[in-house]
Nucleic acid binder design. Structure first.
Lengths: 194, 194
DNA sequence: GTCTATACACCGATAGAC
DNA sequence: GTCTATCGGTGTATAGAC
């Protein structure tokens, strides 16, 4: 099965063209949605012939998964940096509010609904990041002597991701009802732990 | 332009077949995603011929919009009931946690990314519901003499929708990390205003 | 590694009979 | 209101030359 001689001859996805295809995929996902992420459209966006895509990836499903995996790897690296901060809660909030693209995230989440590989990847990514965040936040609480905080570390981790994502998504659609109040609440909470 | 003689002859979407098509659309969206919501697939699911769909709707885009509009109308009716409760915050939380389908919601949100009609409908729906919720919550705060609550009415309205949606989505993917803590926090908050 | 050529299914949508 | 027939376009994917 893993025999190289019977396997389909195939280029490495981590080559220049491979990355160009993944970049093109995300541009298309962002601008036109996963329904438009076809081999023709993505190849055109990357400036290569449609059929070449199948030299780098066995199928469209595999390419979408590869694009998402590259994204979670980068997300994990950024998370490590945020958690290394002296104010990890504030660092997480500001990083998520700035660097996470809600449109792309929602596209991947919808994709996960009916793409088993992406669904699995989403699940392991969320479990891992939330656990790392909760541990770091718990350390902050201990350092401040806040063992009885109403917002537990795991809840804080969930809320930061959840609120920043939805706030960003709505803002991107021109919806701002109540956002001022939510941001004020977040800042108030962040101050409580600093 | 609105001249009936020049307009395409067309059946009323609020007929038995029209609703059957909208029901079929949502089943397909839920199970296979908007990429699978094609005229052939939806018609098959509704048990009618593919071409009949275009007798009820001018285009696929229009049909998807009609399906979403029917959904927001029902959502608004349910909201009115929730707000009529003596404990509107708890009613909202429980209704949203039970009756909102996260999979379908995310599919529509991704769809809104590149479907102008749905994007507009989402925006007006969210603005309207959040305003109604915030007004009702403000009345509860006043009745309890909680004018200085850290969680303002608009922020509470945002958080209930935001948290219940993401919690439901994750749970549907088998992710539960931190959920217990979040639910406990929500219950604690609800008790504060009762 | 990139190209051309190509197979074959499915897409949205229209025309017109009944 | 539902049917059959059909159009041109696009989808994934493979074979094989260079």
């Amino acid at each position: 099965m893993a025999d190289a001689s019977t396997a389909k001859r195939r280029g490495r996805p981590d080559s220049a063209t491979g990355h160009a295809l993944l970049d093109a995929t995300e541009r298309v996902l962002r601008a036109e949605g996963y329904g438009a992420a076809t081999s023709r459209r993505v190849a055109q966006e990357a400036g290569v012939k449609q059929q070449l895509l199948f030299y780098y990836f066995d199928s469209m499903d595999e390419m979408l998964l590869a694009a998402f995996q590259r994204r979670t790897q980068r997300g994990l690296a950024r998370l490590q940096q945020d958690l290394a901060s002296a104010r990890p809660l504030r660092a997480l909030w500001e990083d998520y509010s700035r660097a996470v693209d809600p449109k792309l995230t929602f596209e991947y989440m919808a994709l996960a609904n009916h793409h088993a590989g992406i669904r699995r990847e989403v699940a392991t990514f969320i479990r891992r990041t939330r656990r790392l965040q909760a541990e770091r936040i718990a350390a902050v609480y201990r350092a401040r002597g806040m063992s009885e905080a109403p917002v537990s570390p795991a809840a804080a981790a969930f809320l930061i991701g959840c609120v920043s994502l939805l706030l960003g998504r709505e803002a991107g659609s021109g919806i701002n009802t109540g956002h001022r109040e939510v941001r004020r609440l977040v800042q108030w909470c962040l101050k409580q732990v600093e």
